[in-house]
């Protein structure tokens, strides 16, 4: 990615593996402050892993992960938890606490990290729920919410402490068009009104490109393309274009690597009968 003037997050030469599989092999990335940055890529390329590295839930084998000027892997438990108070994260499943109502879910981080009186907590929670359009659903339990409402309630919870950074893990996955439109609007509006630094991980190309200031595409453990949405649309790489246009075959092959098909089905290959037979 082109060097940002004021990066809020910086990953440099990050190496990370899961078992024998190398997920990132020297990945470097800068995420500018106050902007929406989309990280896109095919499923299984480690986009969520990238968010977990930024949040300090995983540690890289090599390289540095800097957030708000602090080296995340080197932070002790207390310092890391203090840094996380500046972060919000919207999980793919919403991850609402199933034994708490929508109101109590949003109030949870406020109750844990502040000693505000109950009436003030109530006002803050209702403001956050109003921002996502769920003030009327405050007394519902998570099991009573639709998928879209769950994600909006989780979004209200992730902004409860007015974070500086918010990370969205696949916010559009499994949403109907209306719910997707609502989430797109919320991400854009929240970023503008709260001055957040937003990191959006998704493989939904049109939605992501419609709201991000910058985007990068991760594949095979490295960044294969980055820039503004317009720059990406005109990117010369076949791999980038295959992902953006959703082509089924290309640099990323349709077929999973396998042995020769003729050998698999036990039929003689062309070499045995001669060409053309």
């Amino acid at each position: 990615m082109s060097v940002a003037k004021d990066p809020y997050i910086e990953l440099r030469d990050v190496v990370f593996s899961r078992g024998e599989r190398r997920i990132f092999d020297g990945l470097s990335l800068q995420i500018p402050k106050g902007k929406v940055t989309a990280i896109m890529g095919p499923s299984g390329t480690g986009k969520t892993t990238l968010l977990r590295l930024i949040g300090g839930q995983l540690k890289p084998e090599a390289g540095t992960v800097m957030v708000a000027g602090e080296s995340v892997p080197d932070l002790g438990r207390k310092a890391l938890y203090r840094l996380r108070e500046k972060m919000g994260m919207l999980f793919q499943s919403g991850a609402l606490f199933t034994d708490l109502s929508v109101f109590e879910n949003v109030a949870f981080p406020i109750r844990v990290h502040t000693r505000l009186p109950d009436d003030m907590i109530r006002d803050i929670v209702l403001m956050k729920l109003e921002a996502v359009g769920l003030r009327g659903a405050r007394d519902l339990m998570p099991a009573q919410l639709s998928g879209g409402m769950t994600r909006r309630a989780a979004l209200a919870r992730s902004i409860a402490l007015d974070p500086e950074l918010i990370m969205y893990d696949e916010p559009f996955a499994g949403q109907d068009p209306i719910a997707m439109g609502v989430v797109v609007k919320l991400i854009r509006d929240l970023n503008a009104s709260m001055g957040l630094t937003s990191v959006l991980v998704s493989h939904d190309v049109p939605e992501s490109l419609s709201i991000c200031h910058y985007a990068c595409i991760v594949s095979g453990g490295r960044i294969i393309g980055d820039g503004t949405p317009e720059e990406l649309q005109n990117h010369p790489s076949d791999e980038v274009q295959q992902f953006l246009k959703g082509r089924p075959d290309g640099p990323v092959p349709f077929h999973f690597p396998s042995v020769d098909a003729a050998a698999d089905w036990g039929i003689a290959g062309p070499g045995q009968y001669g060409d053309g037979q």
């Binding site: 839930q57 938890y81 996380r84 994260m89 999980f91 991850a95 949870f108």
Partner: peptide, 14 residues
């Protein structure tokens, strides 16, 4: 499995 523990960690709660 439903990422409730992870979300707690990300809220700065052990």
């Amino acid at each position: 499995a439903t990422e409730q523990l992870s979300s707690m960690e990300m809220m700065g709660v052990d």
